[in-house]
Simulated scan of single mutants.
Amino acid sequence: MSVTAPLSWRSAAVGLAVREGEHGPCADAAAHYLAADLTMAVAVVHATGTRPEAARLAPLLAESAVRAAAQRGALAGVLHAALAVSDPGPEGDGPDATIALAVRRADGHTTTAWAGECRVWSWDGTALTLHSTGHDHSGVRPGGTPAAEHGVTLAQATPALVGQAVIPAGRTLVLATPGLHRQLAADTRARLTAAHVSTPQRLADALSQAATATPGTARADAAVLVLS
């Protein structure tokens, strides 16, 4: 299964692609939301847990995150989504997720926030720059380590633990779930971005379809969102 959803609104253009891996149903999702003041919020989510539950949860998390973020900012969007997975349930094994989110105001000011392994890159015309520092799934290290240096998932997200960054003006953003950076080499990501950056939907499709399984592994779910 592959989902695409292009959107253009004045100076903002969004390309979105979600590709199911070999162990469906798909537990990755992407969403975008344009507020009344023309603030655009975009997000990708990778949910974990039992497949049916994770597949139901991922799009709900993405949608709730972007709607909150467009009104209250990137950090608020991540924390709003975190409420849905903050309780582990009676068995203590409730679902979790990772997320990357970006907010672009009408004046072009862009911020991003993330929890977990989802990624945020920007394209400056010549190179992809990674802004998110991939939190792994190892949990929070003690001793006040900065959020950028330790593992944190959405269920663990707090204001102090969510990674945040300001994106330089005029750049195209690429947000992706772990299925992209785990199964698509950095040079291939850069080459495809250079070739298709002028058309966000074409770039999202190209990146999501290019990610392939490595020997001994299965093809993973992947969600890609491009904002230009």
Results as ranks from 00 to 15, higher is better:
R67H: 04
V85I: 00
V85K: 01
D96E: 06
V85P: 01
G77F: 14
G73H: 11
R67L: 02
A58C: 06
P95F: 10
A69E: 07
S64D: 11
G94L: 08
Q71D: 09
E63D: 15
H80D: 14
D93K: 11
S86M: 08
R56W: 11
A55P: 08
L79R: 05
G73E: 08
A62S: 02
R67N: 01
E91R: 10
G92A: 09
P95H: 06
A55E: 03
D96V: 03
L61Q: 01
D87M: 06
H80W: 14
L61R: 03
A81R: 12
Q71I: 00
P95G: 01
G77Q: 12
L79C: 01
P59T: 01
E63K: 13
L57E: 05
L75M: 11
G77D: 10
E63T: 12
L75E: 09
A81K: 11
G89Y: 07
G89I: 00
A82T: 03
D87L: 10
P95M: 04
S64G: 09
G89V: 00
R56Y: 11
L83H: 15
S64H: 14
S86I: 00
A65D: 05
A70C: 08
V66P: 02
V66C: 05
H80I: 09
R67A: 01
T98L: 10
D96N: 14
D93P: 05
A58S: 06
S64R: 15
L60R: 15
A74Y: 11
Q71Y: 10
L79I: 04
E91T: 12
A84G: 09
D93T: 09
V66F: 11
A69V: 13
A84C: 10
D96M: 05
G92L: 13
L60W: 14
A74F: 12
T98N: 05
A68P: 07
L75D: 02
V85G: 00
D87A: 13
A68Q: 15
S86Q: 12
R56A: 15
A70L: 08
G94P: 04
A70E: 02
A55R: 04
L75N: 02
R67Q: 09
V85T: 01
E91W: 14
A68L: 12
D87I: 00
L83Q: 15
A84P: 08
A70M: 07
A68N: 13
E63S: 11
P95D: 00
D93S: 13
A62F: 14
